[in-house]
Design a binder for these strands. Sequence first.
DNA 1: CTGAAAGCGCTAACAA
DNA 2: TTGTTAGCGCTTTCAG
Lengths: 343, 343
Amino acid sequence: MVKKNVTIHDIAKELNITASTVSRALNDHPLISDSTKERVRKVVKKLNYQPNTVAANLRKGKANTVGLVIPRINRIFFANIISGIESVLNEAGYNIIITQSEENLDKEISNIQTLINNRVRGIIISHSKASKNGKHFQKIIDNGIALVQFDRVLENINCSNVTNDNRNGSYEATKHLINQDYKKIAFFGGPQHINIYKNRYLGFIDAMKEKNIPIDKSLVFNNAVTRESGFNTLAELHKNNNLPDAIYAVSDYSALGALLYCQNTNIKIPDEIGIVGFLNEPFCEFITPSLTSLNQFGVSMGESAAKLCLEQIISKEINFSKKVIISPQLIIRDSSNRKKESI
Amino acid sequence: MVKKNVTIHDIAKELNITASTVSRALNDHPLISDSTKERVRKVVKKLNYQPNTVAANLRKGKANTVGLVIPRINRIFFANIISGIESVLNEAGYNIIITQSEENLDKEISNIQTLINNRVRGIIISHSKASKNGKHFQKIIDNGIALVQFDRVLENINCSNVTNDNRNGSYEATKHLINQDYKKIAFFGGPQHINIYKNRYLGFIDAMKEKNIPIDKSLVFNNAVTRESGFNTLAELHKNNNLPDAIYAVSDYSALGALLYCQNTNIKIPDEIGIVGFLNEPFCEFITPSLTSLNQFGVSMGESAAKLCLEQIISKEINFSKKVIISPQLIIRDSSNRKKESI
DNA sequence: CTGAAAGCGCTAACAA
DNA sequence: TTGTTAGCGCTTTCAG
């Protein structure tokens, strides 16, 4: 038997009052008498009434819902972000609809459309690698929905965002290598149309310039963010007799690939080659040698993104655009510490 | 300026037809002429109409939405689960509302209530450590909402679930240690009221019994799932001159704690102590010595849970209750492989 | 193939 | 302090 949902009307009938009174009582309206509220509460229990948020949302013309569009949920960085977002939004009484783009532009677009159709108040998004511009983001803004980008940010869209200070982080990482007397530093980077990778490259350049070290283009790679590519890139350099004495990799995975290549070929880390990664994945601490890396504060980033989103929702401003920049932290470990600095 | 949403009525007016025709056209109803559909499509574009799913859901009395209740999103196992769930449900046209209980019973209860109020069609849940019984789950079933538990499962609730074969996994892990000629095996377990921990204990017992090794109660611990507790538990055993020659830890974190303790005190792994963990966290592969562990297939578990949920939603059965059991895979690494078996 | 009419469950202005 | 009334935007039965 499919049972019919109990409604406010059913409660009203039971008490010989009207639906509006019941509604008000349920929402703890100040003008409703305590006795009425109490009677309503009793009948709610008795009939096992469950409020219908969908109906309330429709009537109010808005829902306390925020949508998330994430490339991949099962990356620890994104999982941390989601966790931070959830804490803040749940606390504020908001629901979260989660979607993943799987680095696919079409899926990203359709996820955004779904969220718009569900009349979310805000969308928090980190775009897929396939998104080269923010045309599909404009629709969010045009529909009066708060928009916050994080981590990966498309610059041509006027909205709030939360990012790592990738450039400065890279600068610090590179400077650290230079201070360790590494001279021939390879850069294992990512696609330059993605702003985080671009900024990581710029920070690398900043440090090299500051220390008057010319950039050797044969040591700069913009497609080396995976374990395989890290391994292969270093192998290629080795084969060409062009081994660097240090690698700054903008992803721990390519750093890992390079590290494994060194282990395979008996290149000593950090003596012959120093390695620094980015992300501070959990394995950095435990691998041998432990891997120097830049820690991003995922949970904090998520919290900030959620707060910006709430702020915009509450302010109702259309051109709301605040930027939060979070500094990554260089965690110096064995893989780059050949001067044995105390850490 | 806050712009008013364009509705089906606006489209109808524009075309001098009725809202019902527009609605049908939008839903590709077979009885609507192609020309009408085409005209509607044009006006949709022109007016930039965004369908309102909330209203449609209310009218249809149901939404294609499923809720998730997860202890912590930022654990890679749960992140994998969520990812698997998302893929399947998104494919089927469902939205996902995500919540985390943070191991807190009150939050779990309120999350469930929120989901019920949002009229989700199904709830997929892994309960918090604070949930000792499923009283609060019954409400889900009573409201005709599909319920699927995964991983951590409360047994007194009649619903579908997806679990690891924790008992058999533990059995295999323990047998592996015994086959490696370890004789004095410590068990670092978790709270026995949580069924996964209980089953992991039972599997341990199974193997020990099969091999006629008596259980030494002084080596059995039921509160050792964290890095700290793994470290301290082993330290305590050491202090008491009661060092085991192997540890089977039901969590990689306590295995890690034990491993670090061995490193600190120069106990040789795997020669003096063999260690096996559970979860196959990414660091297992990279730590030295690499850590033998049981891999759980999180993404598959998520996919299975989502499929069971969909199946129940479609079947509309009240007493739907299927069980999917996924076998964890023992990945033998250096930490327990003292006979140097080829892996 | 299209229209008329009713209503999903709730809330809120206005009235009393 | 409560009731009346209207309607959020959509779908669907029944009628034509």
